[in-house]
């Protein structure tokens, strides 16, 4: 009998610390699958952020590096410049990438650094118990926006893909979600494209993944997925924003 579903070699077989219904486990499994399928485990180096995914190195069986909050793109740059033949990716959350690390992500994209960024956007700070993120939606309630995010006091949700796609140095920019098997398959394809962009030395790639945080959204897992499809995807439309393969 042939096994048709098994744990990827690169995914360490251990319980994760993620909350029930969290999207990080899905995304990290996809990364492990891709590393296996592309047979690049021996030459891939990953960056773990400060945030919920800080312990990603407990789950991915590859060389990995922690980085200070917001700095993974710079650390990745430092690694990639030493090992240009290796595949370097950073795994970042919304606070890390779109708040404290805004300068780093913009300038790394602008240098056209040949790395892949996996940006998990769940519109909230999870690790610190659910404060407002730069991507928190208008009127969304968090610990620090108890009456909902107000544009007057807190500004607007930051659209990272839209910003990065107008930067000359970026090559592949896409937004996706993991709310259904179909979307998960799509996400895997886009992540593959990100790695392919790097392997073919095309330059900077970023894949933003809208991901559920049922615990700090105060929703059930099913409601969370609906929230992404109905609310979040309106503010953050899915799609490919820039693609070096299709010049228009």
């Amino acid at each position: 009998m042939e096994a048709i579903y098994k744990t990827p070699k690169t995914l360490i077989d251990t319980p994760t610390h993620y909350c029930p219904g969290c999207g990080h486990g899905i995304v990290q499994r996809l990364i492990a699958e891709i590393i296996d399928e592309m047979d690049i485990r021996g030459k891939t180096i990953g960056l773990a952020p400060v945030g919920c995914a800080v312990l990603a190195y407990n789950y991915l069986d590859i060389d990995m590096c922690e980085a200070a909050h917001g700095r993974p793109p710079s650390v990745a740059t430092g690694i990639k410049r030493v090992h240009p033949e290796k595949i370097v990716f950073s795994y970042q959350g919304d606070g890390d990438l779109a708040a404290i690390g805004t300068a780093e992500i913009i300038h790394t994209a602008n240098r056209g650094e040949n790395i892949t960024v996996i940006f998990v956007n769940n519109a909230v700070y999870g690790m610190t118990n659910g404060q407002m993120a730069p991507t928190t939606l208008i009127n969304q309630k968090t610990l620090t926006t108890p009456h909902g995010r107000s544009e007057k006091n807190d500004g607007y949700p930051l659209r990272v893909c839209e910003i990065l796609s107008v930067i000359d140095g970026s090559r592949f920019i896409a937004r996706t979600s993991i709310t259904s098997p179909k979307n998960i398959i799509k996400t895997k394809q886009l992540l593959e494209k990100g790695f392919k962009t790097q392997i073919q030395e095309k330059g900077f790639s970023l894949i933003e993944i809208l991901s559920p945080c049922p615990v700090y959204w105060r929703m059930s897992s099913v409601e969370s997925l609906k929230f992404i499809d109905k609310e979040m995807s309106t503010t953050f439309p899915l799609g490919i924003f820039k693609d070096w393969e299709s010049r228009n």
Partner: peptide
């Protein structure tokens, strides 16, 4: 910040 973190990356990479 970028400078010292690039140093961090290159040092981690063994250079």
């Amino acid at each position: 910040l970028a400078a010292i973190n690039m140093v961090y990356g290159s040092a981690a990479a063994g250079a």
